[in-house]
């Protein structure tokens, strides 16, 4: 696995002459609107007075999560996103995926970027088996593709290592088992631009190693990989470029080592 990985790095360096952009963010702003959080008092009378004082979006609080971020990502890059909690990393990923509408600015992408996350489509009351099919369909795989990869997904998740759990409802799984199944389903698809949001932290150590391997594989198939993580080690292992976000602004953008050094100085590690 590791050899293949370095081999790919060399290939990338060789391609540097012809660099194709895959994602361009141009002065991107994302604003969340939260209902009923304006006055701090959630009482009925406060809500009523908000309705009566009709005006431009009264009673709606705005959260400016991403403020004017611009960057260009190229084919073959693995980009880490770092920053403290609430700095806008996950929001930025969703905006790149086109899942959150931009307030101002634009994101241009090559093909359809996909977020490695299928949790929301799965249902706890259904068996693991049906969840694999449902999750696969939700990600846009065809029934044939799912059938083809079904066994791989089950084997990768290791759900059946301790008996026939795949035919039981997901609510009966331990939290680790459920997380492993979710990751296995999400990682079963090939992507052009792949975005991973702290997925590496799931499962036991054996499974973590397996998923890191799978992510390297996905990187080879994908044009560009984005990885959000608080684990500097997994960023170092997988990324060659890092974007550092702080309070929704791009604080630094550069090679992994340079940015991580500054970031570690900043966080006082």
């Amino acid at each position: 696995m590791a050899e293949q990985n370095t081999g790919q790095h060399d290939g990338l360096a060789g391609d540097a002459g012809e660099r194709r952009p895959t994602v361009i963010a141009d002065d991107l702003h994302i604003v969340y609107r939260v209902n009923g959080a304006k006055t701090g008092k959630g009482s009925a009378t406060a809500a009523l007075s908000r309705i009566l004082k009709r005006g431009e979006e009264r009673g709606v609080r705005k959260v400016h999560a991403v403020r004017g971020v611009s960057f260009v990502a190229y084919r073959g890059e693995a980009i880490g996103l770092i920053g403290s909690n609430g700095s806008g990393k996950s929001t930025l990923l969703r905006a790149i995926a086109g899942l959150l509408p931009a307030e101002r600015g634009k994101v241009y992408t090559d093909g359809q970027p996909s977020l490695l996350g299928v949790n929301a489509a799965l249902m706890n009351d259904l068996t693991g088996e049906r969840n694999i099919i449902l999750g696969g369909l939700a990600m846009g795989m065809s029934r044939e593709q799912i059938k083809e990869r079904y066994q791989d997904i089950v084997d990768f998740s290791g759900i059946n290592e301790k008996g026939d759990f795949i035919t039981l409802p997901m609510r009966t799984y331990s939290s680790g088992m459920a997380a492993r199944l979710r990751f296995s389903i999400a990682a079963a698809k090939d992507h052009d631009v792949l975005m991973i949001d702290e997925a590496l932290a799931t499962g036991d150590r054996k499974f973590q190693k397996r998923s890191e391997e799978r992510i390297r594989e996905l990187r080879k198939e994908a044009g560009t990989v984005f990885l959000v993580s608080h684990n500097n080690k997994s960023i170092r292992d997988t990324c060659n470029r890092v974007l550092w976000l702080e309070r929704g602004e791009l604080r630094m953008d550069g090679p992994t080592e340079e940015v991580l050094k500054e970031y570690e100085k900043f966080t006082g590690k």
């Binding site: 994602v23 905006a95 634009k106 994101v107 970027p113």
Partner: peptide, 14 residues
């Protein structure tokens, strides 16, 4: 950014 996107055939996300 817009020119670069047009040059490589990138489309607006979302």
């Amino acid at each position: 950014a817009a020119e670069l996107a047009a040059k490589y055939g990138l489309s607006v996300s979302g």
